[in-house]
């Protein structure tokens, strides 16, 4: 059986909120290392990969592999009933028909309990190759969100060019063009404001802004976002969570002339 207790419902609320517009039905794969999710969007352009390690829960118990097939719209409805600060416990039997969610208020004696019917989801898992990326950029997640939103007002695509000069986000549209360039930057007082660019070779790739803006819904999960790029491979956008847990998005590039 599965029993996983989260100190704050907020974490799961934010994760689900960040991915629910990208993927609708997905398996939460539970085993003794934690709860994982991998799903593609309907058009097979983007992939979301979530890992909530067992250490992110206290306690965490999962005796055998259990796949919880959940409709994220349904999960969102139920999670809306949880206060951000509630303790959230997920429970399921070994061959479950439902997943049970319990929300406990730390301040009052209120306990709410919900069951969500599970779905049988035949989901393909993709193998994600280990990649030595040509460029890795860590930057404030709010800054990345702002750049993507600002450029989407002009164009549906953005080119991300990384060189030793810095990283340049540029777009061209009907009304004109725009770009934002960031250089490495260290803020001793506010490390969340740091921009770190780790470059082994220059890289330039083009991506759909619609997807990037969607990924940025995860911005409230982490002060920093990491972008990993290599020529002609999908972009990795990673929001690191506590205890080595993470929410990652992969986005296939636009290629050709």
């Amino acid at each position: 059986m599965l029993e996983a207790r989260l100190e704050q419902a907020n974490l799961l609320k934010k994760v689900v909120d960040a991915i629910k517009d990208l993927v609708q039905d997905c398996n939460f794969d539970c085993n003794d290392s934690g709860i994982a999710l991998q799903a593609m969007d309907n058009s097979h352009v983007a992939l979301v990969s979530m890992m909530l390690k067992s250490e992110s829960f206290s306690p965490f118990r999962c005796d055998r592999n259990i796949a919880l097939g959940i409709n994220l719209t349904s999960l969102t409805k139920v999670l809306r009933a949880a206060q951000n600060e509630d303790i959230l416990t997920l429970k399921a039997e070994d061959a479950p028909d439902v997943v049970n969610l319990v929300f406990e208020s730390a301040e009052s004696d209120r306990i709410s309990e919900y069951d969500i019917k599970l779905m049988d989801i035949d989901q393909e898992h993709l193998g994600i190759p280990e990649t030595e990326y040509a460029a890795t950029i860590s930057m404030p997640s709010a800054e990345f969100q702002r750049i993507c939103r600002d450029l989407m007002a002009l164009s549906e695509s953005v080119s991300i060019e990384c060189s030793k000069e810095g990283v340049k986000f540029a777009c061209q549209g009907d009304i004109g063009s725009g770009s934002v360039t960031l250089r490495s930057h260290t803020n001793v007082d506010k490390p969340e404001m740091n921009v770190e660019i780790d470059l082994t070779e220059p890289v330039s790739l083009t991506f759909s802004l619609k997807y990037l803006v969607g990924f940025c819904k995860a911005s409230s999960l982490s002060g920093q976002v990491k972008l990993c790029l290599s020529n002609e491979v999908p972009l990795l956008v990673e929001y690191a969570l506590a205890n080595n847990s993470y929410l990652r998005f992969y986005l296939a590039p636009k290629i050709g002339d």
Binding site: M40, V45, A46, G127, P234, A252, P253
Partner: peptide, 14 residues
């Protein structure tokens, strides 16, 4: 114009 690639062109099904 550039065309949008599929993620399946990069990551193989297990």
């Amino acid at each position: 114009a550039k065309s949008q690639k599929s993620i399946l062109g990069f990551f193989q099904k297990k």
